[in-house]
Computed example of a mutant assay.
Amino acid sequence: MGLSEGPNKSFHIVAVVGSLRKASYNRALMMEAIAAAPEGVTIEVFDQLADMPLFNQDIEEIETPDSALAFKEVIRKADGFLVVTPEYNSGLPAVLKNAIDWASRGTPSVFKNLAVGIMGTSPGALGTSKVQQQLKQSLSGLGAYPLAAPDFVLPLYKSKFDDEMKLNDSKTVTRITNYLDRLRELGLCLNAIRPRS
């Protein structure tokens, strides 16, 4: 897939939520991203992070868990990767880091030359800025290309979502659409050199 194929070329994103809570604001943000995706962009949520055991090479040498194999396969087939995550104790949620560790195994890495978007919301004024920097460092080390600034950080979520956990701020919806469009642009540039096997 190359940039010459045009901005309206179908672009498929696989996405994960770093929270396991059903009523998570970051899960709500993911649903808003699906609804706000620009024309031609589809988002598939991989929702099996809780099914993966803690990474252990002894387990891997016997048999890699089906959930980890499935995660690697959807990343391999996708045009881009989106992470929507909270920040736990100024860092990565364990379930998210564990999934990345499982998916990082093997050569070539499914993360090599992969366009990555990172979004997050929190009740605090700083949003999820610290966890986003950690994710960028980790994924860049695996050969991925996280989107550069401006980051998509949404602080003070109680002022952005209504009682039904729907965004009540049209400017934020526009920001989501523009961010996903940038992810597509980066992905179209990178997909021509991404290993798929």
Score class of each variant (00 low, 15 high):
Pro93Ser: 02
Ser19His: 07
Gly127Ile: 04
Asp47Tyr: 10
Gln57Ile: 12
Ala35Gly: 07
Ala125Asp: 15
Leu49Trp: 04
Val83Ser: 08
Lys166Glu: 12
Leu92Ala: 00
Ala68Met: 06
Ala78His: 00
Phe71Ala: 01
Leu69Cys: 02
Leu49Asn: 07
Ile193Asn: 09
Leu188His: 07
Arg27Val: 08
Thr174Ser: 13
Pro146Glu: 02
Val45Arg: 08
Asp169Ser: 07
Tyr88Ala: 03
Leu3Trp: 13
Leu135Gln: 08
Asp169Ala: 06
Glu61His: 10
Leu156Trp: 00
Arg105Val: 02
Asp79Trp: 02
Trp102Ile: 08
Ser19Ile: 11
Gly143Phe: 12
Gly120Ser: 13
Asp51Thr: 09
Asp163Leu: 12
Arg76Glu: 05
Asn178Met: 08
Cys189Ser: 11
Asn98Tyr: 12
Asp58Glu: 15
Arg194Val: 02
Glu5Phe: 14
Ser170Leu: 10
Leu135Pro: 06
Leu156Ile: 08
Ala103Pro: 07
Ala115Arg: 03
Lys166Ser: 08
Ala50Gly: 14
Thr85Pro: 05
Ser109His: 04
Asp79Thr: 01
Ala15Phe: 07
Asn8Gln: 14
Ala115Asp: 06
Thr85His: 03
Ser4Thr: 15
Lys72Leu: 00
Ser197Ala: 10
Val83Gln: 07
Gly127Trp: 02
Pro65Gln: 00
Thr177Leu: 01
Ala35Leu: 13
Ala68Glu: 03
Leu29Phe: 07
Val45Ile: 15
Leu142Pro: 09
Lys9Met: 15
Glu32Met: 08
Ala149Lys: 08
Arg194Cys: 02
Leu3Met: 14
Ala99Ser: 12
Val14Asn: 02
Ser4Lys: 11
Ser138Cys: 11
Ile118Asn: 08
Leu154Cys: 03
Ile75Val: 04
Ala70Val: 00
Leu190Gly: 06
Lys72Trp: 00
Met30Ala: 13
Asn26Pro: 06
Gln57Lys: 13
Ala94Phe: 11
Pro7Ser: 14
Gly187Asn: 04
Phe152Lys: 03
Leu183Thr: 03
Gly127Ala: 09
Lys158Ile: 04
Met31Cys: 08
Ser24Tyr: 09
Ile193Met: 13
Lys160Gln: 15
Val173His: 04
Thr85Glu: 07
Pro123His: 10
Ala103Thr: 05
Met165Glu: 07
Ala148Leu: 13
Phe152Gly: 03
Arg21Trp: 14
Gln137Pro: 02
Ala115Tyr: 05
Leu29Trp: 05
Ser10Ala: 15
Ser170Glu: 15
Phe152Gln: 05
Met1Cys: 07
Cys189Thr: 10
Ile75Trp: 00
Pro38Val: 03
His12Thr: 11
Pro7Thr: 11
Ile13Ser: 04
Leu188Ile: 01
Thr177Asp: 01
Ile34Met: 12
Ser90Met: 04
Met165Trp: 04
Asp66Trp: 00
Ala15Glu: 04
Ala36Asn: 09
Thr121Gln: 01
Gln48Arg: 14
Tyr25Ile: 02
Glu5Ala: 14
Lys166His: 13
Ser129Leu: 12
Ala99Ile: 04
Gln132Glu: 10
Ala149Cys: 00
Ala192Tyr: 05
Met119Leu: 15
Ala144Ser: 13
Gly124Ser: 10
Ile193Trp: 09
Val95Arg: 01
Cys189Asp: 03
Asn191Cys: 02
Pro155Ile: 08
Ser109Thr: 11
Leu147Tyr: 07
Val74Ile: 11
Val17Phe: 10
Glu44His: 15
Arg196Glu: 09
Asp163Trp: 01
Leu82Asn: 04
Val131Ala: 05
Tyr179Arg: 06
Gly2Glu: 14
Leu126Val: 14
